[in-house]
């Protein structure tokens, strides 16, 4: 059981650290990729809390859909900025 506690503690530290880095980094692409990693760690945390239904929703939405949405928006913003600079 102490191994499970070690797992939980490491997972909690990883969650807090990735959340802190997501907010503290000034660059948007870095923040988005750290946020995707955060969603994945949240999925593992839901499994540890014995809530597989929430883990399923978080894996589909948090790691897949939100990440793709954010990356798409980042690409669009970046392209528009470059076009504006060129013209």
């Amino acid at each position: 059981m102490t191994l499970g506690l070690a797992f939980d503690l490491l997972l909690a530290c990883a969650l807090l650290w990735s959340a802190w880095r997501t907010l503290s980094t000034p660059r948007l692409d870095r923040a988005i990729i750290l946020f995707i990693a955060f969603g994945l760690l949240m999925t593992i945390a839901w499994i540890r809390l014995s809530a597989p239904d929430i883990a399923l929703a978080e894996a589909a939405i948090g790691a897949g859909l939100t990440g793709a949405l954010l990356l798409d928006a980042y690409g669009a913003l970046r392209q528009r900025k470059r076009r504006r600079k060129a013209s």
Binding site: D29, L40, L71
Partner: peptide, 15 residues
């Protein structure tokens, strides 16, 4: 679904 992020990155975000 982990692959979707990679595809979105390669197709959209990596300019």
């Amino acid at each position: 679904l982990a692959a979707i992020g990679g595809i979105a990155f390669a197709k959209r975000a990596w300019r």
